[in-house]
Write a protein that binds this DNA or RNA. Structure first.
Length: 691
DNA sequence: GAAGAGAGCGCC
DNA sequence: AAAGGGCGCTCTCTTC
């Protein structure tokens, strides 16, 4: 439950809800509340009661089923940045509420409401046949419900509709303002309204807010927070109050009541197909990835944590001798370089910057610079959140928070700790269970392939299909600087021989597609502005179809107010003002990044099912790569399966592409990048030797 | 004293 | 007017 700062509640109550997209406004015309049996909540705490409920569900022509769980946690939360972080594996289900919906011709329905005391695990297990019914199961933020079901050793439903996920998709990108826009609006009379909208964004996906948007009645909104709390503190053996039971039933019924209006809204927004094909099944996979967690080598974790205190003091001492007391302080760095008459070398955008890209080419200027870079690096590594032992769950694994649709592009994000952003040198901290191995399969250069496909550029498609697209690009661009035989060198060989050239082209190719201007290109390539301009011109001249399609993406997207992925997930603009550079860029980017995410999730959905035959598990989804854990004897098979399924997922949607996957199972004793499994070990050894 | 902004850096 | 998209995390410095 989101808690607002003092005073904000009043502001919000006074502030009208931000304007919703058109499609929701028309929902008021749909039949509203017609449930006849809302008042009859049946509490189930016996085998007979439970069997009667299951029997009713089987003999009635049920349309869909709303469900919800009330739970507590068996262990206290970890405090991260003043916020409480609970481990999912410690979830302790108390009540499971079930609302069976029986549609009645022409436009009403009956709702049979049940609340099951699932503290008795034997009782809970009798629910299995219910969850095997071939009807949609509807829940709000179903991830929590799935974790409860798995804790109770119940199967997840075959068909799932998550009203939170649907809502998230239907409003993707709305009311997210970037810094510039915030500054702009804070100078206008609309500031208060927008500030409120910004805060309102935090709570708009709650069940209560969602019900309000769809005119679905929600009776206990005022008491919701207090009732939720009551379950967290509920004693294991205490009976539940009638109000607690009603509240549990209400949440399941509210979710069920949202189903039809939300499906209608999704249809109007052309997002229904995406939700059914991709997002809803991915909810299950995402929940399972979280449930699976990752094992972290405790000994190695400790050694890395110790390396910081060993290595840093010496560097800090040297920096202090030079006159830098705190290398993390921007003003101190500014003062230091000013005293050396070097400050001009760090100027950037009217100020001064000491970031790595800016200073890595200035190492020769001052002895402090290499020390700075190394100190920053060691500090960054050894303060990584992954080193927090308290994240270990009751099963000895770390269950990070994998957030679905967290990015406006449709990508997942991850936190507590952020496994997706884990520094590659730290990856070997993640190790498999005994008798298992870890592997990774990634889709090579998928964003280029998807760009070529969604923007319909045959030439770019051909280059992608030929193999290493960045090598091909580099061979085109640097043709004059290469010996003739290397201009036609095979992709893999070129990649090896001219890795730097290729890396530059990787940055530039993606950058140009996503709106990099000559002003941004020139420093990245270390060429003059004029050269960058001509380079970009040459690039675009090679791909006229792409250039046109990119322009259209910004133009039409700006006019209609959204960009869409291949399967129909939209990212909306927050305003109807003149299109900004930033918007223009993400309107071009979303169809690519978002469609790549579509494909990736589709592959994950299939893998989650197919892995069962090998007792394998998905453990980390890294945007275009899956990290998995499997019994050693099945590791190769699972890797090959993963590669096949990921390539097929691309080809099913973009048949013109010939995607390639890279398999990494060479050092299955830990997660690693490019087989660099020993680097961390060596780094620690070095540190401890120095001590 | 705590929250937020900004800079910086890691990942794709 | 700024100058490529999407994230999360840590630290410093400012502000209320």
């Amino acid at each position: 439950m989101t808690t607002l700062l003092p005073g904000w509640k009043e502001v919000l109550d006074k502030t009208p809800q931000p304007a919703a997209p058109d499609f929701t406004k028309q929902l008021a015309r749909l039949p509203k509340k017609t449930s006849k049996y809302l008042e009859a909540v049946t509490f189930v705490d016996s085998d007979e009661g439970l069997d009667a409920m299951v029997q009713l569900a089987c003999e009635k022509p049920i349309g869909w089923i709303g469900f919800d769980t009330e739970f507590t946690y068996d262990r206290p939360p970890v405090i991260v940045k003043k916020r409480e972080v609970v481990d999912v594996r410690s979830v302790h289900p108390l009540l499971l509420s079930i609302s069976l919906v029986e549609p009645v011709i022409p436009d009403s329905w009956k709702v049979y409401q049940f609340v099951v005391d699932v503290r008795q695990r034997d009782l809970a297990r009798r629910l299995t046949p219910l969850f095997q019914l071939a009807v949609p199961f509807v829940a709000h933020f179903a991830r929590a419900e799935l974790h409860c079901l798995w804790q109770l050793q119940l199967p997840e439903p075959h068909i799932l509709w998550d009203t939170w996920v649907a809502e998230k998709a239907l409003y993707l990108g709305l009311y997210n303002l970037n810094d510039q826009e915030m500054k702009y609006i804070s100078d206008t009379e609309e500031a208060d309204h927008w500030q409120s909208a910004k805060v309102a964004e935090l709570i708009r996906y709650s069940l209560v807010d969602t019900c309000r948007r769809y005119d679905v009645p929600y009776g206990l909104a005022q008491d919701k927070e207090q009732l939720q709390q009551s379950f967290l503190q509920h004693d294991e053996n205490d009976p539940f109050t009638p109000q607690q039971i009603d509240y549990a039933a209400l949440d399941a019924t509210a979710a069920a009541s949202l189903f039809l209006p939300q499906v209608t809204a999704a249809t109007r927004a052309s997002t229904l197909e995406h939700l059914i094909q991709i997002e809803m099944p991915w909810t299950v996979v995402n929940a399972r990835i979280m449930w699976n967690g990752v094992r972290i080598d405790p000994a190695m974790r400790e050694r890395v944590a110790q390396a910081g205190p060993v290595l840093l003091p010496e560097l800090e001492r040297k920096l202090k001798e030079l006159g830098i007391g705190n290398y993390k302080s921007h003003p101190q760095l500014q003062r230091y370089f000013e005293s050396r008459n070097l400050l001009h070398a760090f100027s950037k955008k009217g100020g001064y910057s000491f970031d790595k890209d800016q200073i890595k080419n200035l190492k020769h200027l001052d002895p402090a610079i290499p020390l700075l870079i190394e100190a920053k690096r060691i500090h960054s590594l050894t303060s990584d959140m992954i080193l927090t032992p308290a994240f270990d769950g009751p099963d000895g694994r770390v269950h990070a928070d994998h957030k679905q649709l967290a990015a406006d592009s449709g990508r997942n994000s991850c936190r507590h700790p952020n496994l997706l952003g884990l520094d590659r040198t730290m990856r070997p901290l993640i190790v498999p269970d005994v008798g298992h191995g870890i592997g990774e399969v990634d889709l090579s250069q998928i964003e280029i392939g998807v760009s070529a496909a969604v923007y319909g550029d045959e030439r770019l498609t051909d280059m992608f299909n030929r193999g290493d697209v960045y090598s091909a690009m580099a061979q085109l661009f640097f043709a004059d600087n290469l010996p003739p035989e290397d201009v036609v060198l095979a992709g893999a060989a070129f990649k090896k021989k001219y890795s730097k050239m290729r890396d530059q082209m990787k940055t530039c190719t993606l950058g140009i597609i996503y709106g990099l201007t000559p002003h941004g290109l020139s420093p990245r390539l270390s060429v003059s502005l004029q050269e960058a301009e001509s380079l970009q011109r040459r690039f675009m001249d090679l791909f006229p179809t792409l250039e046109k399609a990119l322009k259209d993406a910004s133009h039409y997207g700006g006019l209609r107010g959204y960009a869409a992925t291949h399967s129909g997930l939209r990212r909306y603009r927050s305003s109807t003002a003149k299109i900004s550079n930033w918007e223009s860029n993400w309107l071009r980017n979303h169809p690519v990044q978002g469609s790549a995410a579509d494909v990736f999730k589709a592959a994950g959905i299939r893998l989650d099912k197919l892995y069962q035959q090998y007792a394998a598990r998905l453990i980390i989804p890294v945007h275009d790569a899956f990290v998995f854990e499997a019994p050693i004897e099945h590791l190769l098979m699972v890797a090959q399966l993963t590669a096949r399924v990921m390539c097929e997922a691309v080809q099913e949607r973009f048949p013109q592409l010939r995607p390639q996957c890279e398999i990494n199972i060479d050092h299955s004793e830990c997660w690693n990048k490019d087989g660099m499994a020993l680097a961390l070990q060596e780094w620690c050894d070095q540190a401890l030797k120095a001590a």
